[in-house]
Amino acid sequence: MARRSDPDEQTARISEALWDVLATNGPQGLTLRAVAERAGCTTGLVLHRFPDKRALLLHARDLLHARTAEQTEAVETAAASPTAAVRAVLAQALSLTASTQQEARVWLGYLAASLGDDDLAERHRIGNTVFVERMHRLIGAARPDWDDAHVSTTAMALLALVEGFNVLGTADLVRYSPAVQMAALDRALEAFGLAVDGGDTVIAAS
């Protein structure tokens, strides 16, 4: 008797294939057929779960949010101090490893696809808001002496630095290498008064 297919296993295979196709080929190469071929299943099976390219893209954004949220929560929890948490969370968001470089490519591919689609853009804004609010909370904890406007401006500046490296690094990881990214992040943290010394204390900005 033939073994019945496991719907959860099929969905997991399709999700992994979707992730790989978007990271490798970008939104222009994301098709039902490409995902089916990468997953080793029929186009009909993919179509049964994701009726069109928009559904594939929305699922990819949800996967990205879930992956990065889990990783970010882990590094924040492990941090020894509020300032260490700020650095760890921002570093986790940079393109420093093969995994995070792939995440950056998925993020950038989704963002490119969302330029002409309000529904995709709204999903992106929702995910980005979660990260903005996390950084606002972490910086506020690291610098309770700052008012809300100062915290907010600093959070936005640091997030712009990180996301800028993610965009630039997808095309040129030689110039924007992991070492360059971390050096720039640490210099920015120092300039903003959020650097961490050996005793996990804040180093005042010069």
Rank of each mutant, 00 (worst) to 15 (best):
L57C: 06
L158W: 11
E103K: 11
R125D: 14
A121M: 09
N128Y: 12
L58K: 08
A39R: 14
A69N: 02
I14C: 09
R38P: 05
D6P: 04
P27W: 02
V180N: 10
V202R: 15
G199E: 14
T170D: 10
P178R: 14
A78V: 05
V89W: 09
M135P: 02
L30G: 00
D20E: 07
Q28G: 01
A191S: 15
R125V: 03
T129Q: 10
A74N: 00
Y110P: 00
R87T: 13
L108E: 15
I126P: 03
D200R: 04
P27Y: 04
A113C: 07
Q71F: 00
P51W: 05
R143Q: 13
L194Y: 15
A112G: 05
A184V: 08
A112D: 14
G199H: 13
L138E: 13
R3F: 04
R67G: 02
Q28D: 08
R33Q: 08
E16T: 05
D62N: 01
L189M: 14
S95T: 14
E73S: 02
D8Y: 02
A171W: 04
A88K: 00
L47Q: 11
G109Y: 10
R143S: 15
D148T: 11
L18R: 01
W146N: 04
A191C: 11
Q10C: 02
M182C: 09
C41Q: 11
G169V: 03
P51Y: 02
T72H: 04
Y110G: 15
A60N: 01
Q181P: 06
L90H: 08
H124C: 04
L138D: 10
S99F: 14
A66F: 00
L185Y: 09
A98V: 10
P7A: 07
H136W: 06
W19H: 02
A98E: 15
G127V: 05
L57M: 12
A141P: 05
T201W: 03
L168T: 12
F165V: 12
W146V: 08
E190K: 09
E76R: 12
S15K: 10
V151W: 04
